[in-house]
Structure formats: structure tokens, C-alpha cells
Amino acid sequence: MQGRVLIVAGSDSGGGAGLQADIKTVTALGGFAMTAVTALTAQTTQGVHGVQGVEPAFIQQQMRVTLDDLGADCIKTGMLHSTEVIEAVAEVLREVPDIPVVVDPVMVAQSGADLLHPAAVRSLLRSILPHAALLTPNLPEAEKLAGLSIPDIDAAEHAANTLLTLGVPAALLKGGHLTGDELTDMLVTETGLERFTDPRIPTEQTHGTGCTLASAIATGLAQGLDLRQAVVRGRAYLRGALAHAPGFGRGQGPVNHAWAIPRFDG
């Protein structure tokens, strides 16, 4: 077991996204997952039915005691649903400037439910992004962050470059929301932009894909991979999880986080 990842995110009672997806991903890739719970959601493959926030001071306490005792090689943030939560998490991140942070700007659930109050977007930009080693938005999130419409692949490339103007050193723009038989993600850094294009996997079982990819990349960084290596391995892991999705639930089901783990039969 190598690579300690502190996950600061919300819980998904359905197990497909959020902290549950994060923990499964980190574990499957050989890392050690730790958590600071920001919110509890009553969530299934069919949508988000309720959200109960955690007190910001208690989120900070979870982060601080974990970092003090166990330490971390990477921090991954997910659902930070309010300005108060964002500011609280940012305060702790300022205390550990040497730990890389992967920011998954969770704004909208796969079902379309709003997971970030619109007024909190400015706080996310001002307080969280300055700490990010990598930002991992999907297209709807990038549209909100960059203030651009992204109808096609050329617009996506422009948006990816625009994300760097927000003050992050690197961004991975996920292209799954575009149509077509191919899916293209774009990694942009201060040295340029690289496209990663693969055949689209024909499945509706996509619940938690964003959480899964961000946590896979965070695990790679925690284990000493460079950013590109972490992205390449993270995408390969997610593609395998999509291809082996179990088909659970009556909506957009979860991926198979355990697809690459040998079965233990005792």
C-alpha cells in the first residue's frame, strides 16, 4: 500500500459517487484513503433526494487531525457545497502548502441535481483554485468556471486554455458531455495542451465517473507519478471500470471500481 490520499468530499448513500467512489478508487490502485466528510447525501442512480451539510468547523477538525496523525501525499477535494465550507477547507489547505491538491469542482450531479450553490462559485475560484495542482472539470463545470459556451471540440480546446487563466497550473477538461463516437479529454499545462482521445464506451452506467477519475489521478500523484503519468493511468482505470460496469440501479448506474482487483476466494 503506497500513497496517502485525503479526500474532502460528500458521501453518496448509493455508493457510486462521492467519498464511496473515491475510497474504492484509491484502494483499487494500491493507495491509502482517508476522508473528511463535507456533506451527507441521500442519493441513488436516479438522483439526489436530499443533502445534509456538515458543520464547517467539524470538516476542518477532520482534516487537521488526519493530517497531523497520518499525513497525506495528496489531497483531493470533491463536493464543497457552500461558501462557508469552501472557505473552511481553504483555510486548512493554506496550512499544508507542500501537499498537492486535485480539485474536482463538483457542481452538478450526473442526474442534473445542483451540488454547489451558485453564489459559492466565486468563492471556489478565489479560495480553492489557488491551492490546486490540477483542476478536473467536466464541460458543464468548465462553462461555469470559464464563463464560456462549449458546444464542440474546438470550443473545448479554447476553454481548456482559458482555465489556466484562473490561476491553476494544470487542468484536465473532461469531454464526455460532447457527442460522437470518440471521447476526448484535454490536459493543459503551462507547457501546452495534450488531447487524449479514445473510442466512446457505449454505456449509461456513468454515475461517479468524475469522482473516480479525479481520485485515480490523486492516487497516482500520491504514489510519485508525474502529472501526465497519473492522468494516463487514471483514464485507463476509469475506462476499465466503465467497460465492466455491473448494471446496478434503475438509473445511471455505478462503474465497477473493483474490475482490476483479483477476486479473493479464501
Rank of each mutant, 00 (worst) to 15 (best):
G147C: 12
M63S: 04
Q62N: 08
S127Q: 14
G147P: 11
G167L: 09
I261R: 15
E87F: 03
I75P: 00
F248E: 09
L173F: 12
P100I: 05
D73T: 12
P169I: 09
S111V: 03
H117G: 08
P246S: 10
D265L: 14
A160V: 08
L40C: 10
L70E: 09
Q205A: 13
R250Y: 11
V26M: 10
T184F: 03
I153T: 12
D226C: 14
G3N: 06
L129Q: 04
A171F: 00
A133P: 00
L29A: 03
L135T: 04
Q229C: 04
D22M: 09
D198S: 15
F32S: 13
E182L: 14
K24E: 10
E84V: 05
E95T: 11
L40H: 13
K144F: 00
Q205R: 14
A109S: 15
V108K: 00
L148V: 14
A236E: 12
S127W: 01
D226W: 09
R228W: 08
G16I: 01
G167T: 12
T27G: 08
L40A: 13
A142H: 01
G71V: 09
H257M: 11
G247P: 06
L29C: 11
G266N: 12
T44N: 13
R64V: 11
L148R: 14
I99E: 06
D69V: 15
G147K: 14
A132Q: 04
V188Y: 00
S111R: 08
A216K: 03
L166K: 15
D69G: 08
R233C: 10
S127G: 07
M63P: 01
L178I: 09
A109Y: 00
I86A: 02
L6K: 08
A170R: 01
V232M: 11
Q60F: 07
A9Q: 04
G112N: 01
L164Q: 07
H207V: 02
F196G: 03
V232E: 13
H257Y: 04
D226S: 10
G208R: 02
G15V: 02
A170N: 05
D185Q: 06
G249A: 11
G31K: 00
T206H: 07
N138C: 04
A42P: 06
A28N: 10
P140T: 04
P254E: 04
A120Q: 06
A156D: 08
